[in-house]
Design a protein around this nucleic acid. Structure first.
Lengths: 233, 233
DNA sequence: CGCGTCCTTGAACCGCGTCAAGCCAGGTGG
DNA sequence: CCACCTGGCTTGACGCGGTTCAAGGACGCG
């Protein structure tokens, strides 16, 4: 657990603020932000509530999800340190996206007015955010295609590889710590089916399967399953 | 058919350029852009090709799609005048998104270098684009949920209402001109199934169904079918 | 030790995708 | 002017994959 720290001392080198704002504004934002600790499982943003600003993840991980009919949940995105939560919701728009920490996290909040001023004063900051959203949009559109075309096994493999790419980008671990429900919600299938597929992948020596976590044992083998969807001809 | 015109004379009031750039830059962009005419059915952007800049739709409509395994196509987005095509792809990144005109269109192209300079000089322009991508991301994430949870009928109704909201935002028509294949690709289902559902919706007097087009006869009735997915509790 | 929670596995059902045949309209050529 | 062909659309029959429901097992906690 890390203490709340100012932007100046923060080591999250990929944070948009440090990366793109001039030193004057790094300082201002550091003054104006609120850094809050969220326990694993705690809500960061509630669905259908107005979003009053932007959340920058300083440490930890979170899932972004949307609850559908009959309480069925779809995880639409995973986030880690240096990622951003809270699509710009100026004017207090409501939308049905929630965020929950999946491990203990420190998250910096900057309200709409403040961030708008930062945008106007730091074109590169705005540009960086724009590129970030643009990239997320590409990912999201790819996921639309995948959900529409993949079978369950491919969906599960895709979800695991995605989770690995987000959570283990900068460590050399291949462990994904998510419970079955979250993994099922990310894959877009039900937990029973997920269980079957995990057993299958385990028997193929592609995965190590434990309670609350899976570990990729054979990245190439996993990749091969979804490859046809990413190969460009 | 409209003649190629400069930004200064352009009547697309929602165009990001006119909306957010100062007059000096509107003029510069007007000089630097290339406006091209695309016939209905013609490719604007090819999948897996580098994107060298941004496309602003001056008039017409286009579908944004991605081709998956075995040539299966998923339409991820529809666009009309004032919309933007070509998620920022600096460094000539490749990604599997294509765009095809679905009616005769004039489209303005601005290359990456040029647009970057415009961004740096017009913070509000960058901000506007950022908000645009952010909104599209929200839509895209909603679609992920829908594809994962809706049954075929709901998917079709959702797709039709979406197409109507994009294409008929500013006219008072309820006609959607798309062939069965495109509508199926947008819904994320196959053409045979789509056909069945359309017949069903027709027999319920919700739709008028013709070759290459459908017309919404009862918006409330259509809305009611997908309502549970959008209602916030 | 017993209870609750999470996970696994089996069995049955059914929605949807696939395949194929038939239909209709428009275009072409004899 | 009609016969034929082609391509998009519709409809039926069938089978598979995936969801659902339920029972049983593993583990952690009080």
């Amino acid at each position: 657990m890390r203490k709340v720290i100012s932007c100046i001392d923060c080591e999250v080198s990929e944070c948009m603020v440090k990366k793109f704002c001039n030193s004057e504004w790094v300082e201002k934002i550091s003054e104006g932000k609120q850094t809050v600790f969220y326990k694993s499982g705690q809500h960061i943003v509630y669905e259908n509530n107005p979003v009053m600003g932007l959340y920058f993840i300083q440490s930890g991980k979170a899932k972004i999800f949307s609850t559908g009919i009959y309480g069925k949940t779809q995880v639409v995105r995973l986030t880690k340190a240096s990622d951003i939560i809270g699509h710009r919701g100026f004017g207090g728009e409501l939308y049905p996206i929630g965020a929950v920490a999946v491990e203990n996290s420190y998250i910096c909040f900057v309200d709409n007015d403040f961030i708008y001023k930062a945008f106007m004063a730091n074109p590169k900051f705005t540009f960086g955010l724009m590129m970030y959203y643009s990239k997320e949009l590409r990912n999201s559109e790819a996921k639309i295609k995948n959900l529409a075309q993949m079978n369950v096994k491919e969906k599960v493999v895709d979800a695991i590889l995605y989770a690995d790419s987000v959570f283990n980008e900068d460590n050399n671990s291949k462990v994904i710590t998510l419970n079955r429900k979250d993994l099922a919600d990310l894959s877009g299938i039900n937990a029973a089916q997920l269980s079957r597929i995990l057993s299958e992948l385990k028997s193929e020596n592609l995965l190590r399967v434990e309670i609350n976590e899976v570990e990729i044992l054979n990245s190439e083998g996993m990749q091969a399953i979804v490859d046809p969807f990413y190969k460009t001809y």
